[in-house]
Amino acid sequence: MISWSDVLCLVLVGLINCQNSDQTYPNVTVTLRALHPSGFRAYISANADQTNNIVFNGILYENMEKARNSESDIGLLWGFATRKAHSEWLFEDHFVTLAVGTVIKYGIFIPDQHPNGASKNGRASLTLDGAEPDYKFFRVSYLVDPRTPGPNCLPTLTKVRGRTVCAGEVIFEDNFDTLREDLWQIEQYIPTDHPEHPFLSYQKLDTDRNVYVEDGILNIVPKLQEDLIRKYSSILTGSLDLSDGHRIKNVQNPHSAIIVRKILLEPVFKKFDGQKELASIIKIALAGGNREITANKLQLTLGVAAGGTSVFPDSFVTPHGRTKPWNNSDPKASLKFWQNRDSWYPSWTTPNLIVDYVKVVAL
């Protein structure tokens, strides 16, 4: 076992060790950039399809002489790189400040398998098996604008506020190991000014939740309002409190839940408004179908809707010969939708929207 004590691979309270192996080290090319006013990036091209882990290990020195003699280092650049495309990886450090003349002694470590973690005496350790990296030297000769595209950047129509992206680059990803409220916001409102006017309200329930993560899966569950308030009042005479100070009476709607990503890629909209066009809403599934999905405002919304006064034409007939029970121009369309629930509610055998992961990739 070879300990990286000479390069001090200390992560929080964990010490990382590496072992030699007979595996041939894959071809790796690296482009390093020191950013202005701070930050560092390593663009890595590696034939490493069998691993999800690539480690960048760098040591900082004031000049080349000290770097070659491995003496008096002034800092570290260490961490796991992120896969950006098929064989492209990116390691970033947003906080390090590099000066012209600084030298980085660096190596790229590709484990044979997933890291093995352990804990001893309250100290976490991480062991990686793989070929020892071939260390090289990089001298900072100038600082780069962080908005400059990467070395293998292909042009894309996708635009992201504040930075340049490349075709195939992963812009956002969530695997729903937990419901991250720093990324997602559960909306609560009745979409009376929504361009499609769906017949529902969006609510966040504290008990018998309709939005939750379980076993790495996001679940959005539509429920009938009638079932929720039956113990206390009728849907025709009761009231609905959406916790924002507005009480809406006599709501004849089922309800669901909608999740809006709070970290937006284009103009910020917290809710739908009358000016928002249908083309700016990403629909993962839509009755009637879209051959092309256009999104010129990449706000990502996940939700379950019901009915509506623009999605289904008045001439719509189900495969079982049933006609639509409301007209789009009827001011009581949602009421007629509710009154005909005996015809559509039995079809809600698996109404949940389940999402394994969300990944947004530049075109």
Rank of each mutant, 00 (worst) to 15 (best):
T97C: 02
A81Y: 01
K204H: 10
L76N: 05
Y135S: 13
A99F: 10
A118F: 14
L76F: 03
F137K: 13
K159C: 06
P133M: 11
Q113I: 11
S141M: 15
S141Y: 12
F172N: 05
A118T: 13
P149D: 08
A85V: 01
P115Y: 10
N175C: 07
R68D: 08
G79E: 02
R180W: 07
C153K: 13
C166M: 08
A118R: 14
L154I: 01
F109N: 08
I104W: 02
A124R: 13
H86Y: 12
I186L: 14
K105L: 10
S87R: 05
D93E: 00
L76G: 01
T156W: 12
E92C: 01
K66I: 04
Y202G: 11
R161W: 09
S201G: 13
V96T: 00
S201P: 05
L76R: 12
E88H: 11
V100A: 06
Q113T: 13
V170Q: 12
I104V: 02
E181G: 06
T148H: 11
K136W: 10
Q113W: 12
K105W: 07
P133Y: 12
P191K: 05
H197N: 15
D174V: 01
S70E: 12
E173D: 03
N69A: 04
H94W: 03
D145G: 00
T102F: 08
D93L: 08
P146A: 07
G150L: 08
M64F: 03
G79D: 03
D177S: 03
V140G: 03
V103H: 00
E62A: 05
D134Q: 15
T148V: 09
T158F: 12
L143A: 03
N116H: 14
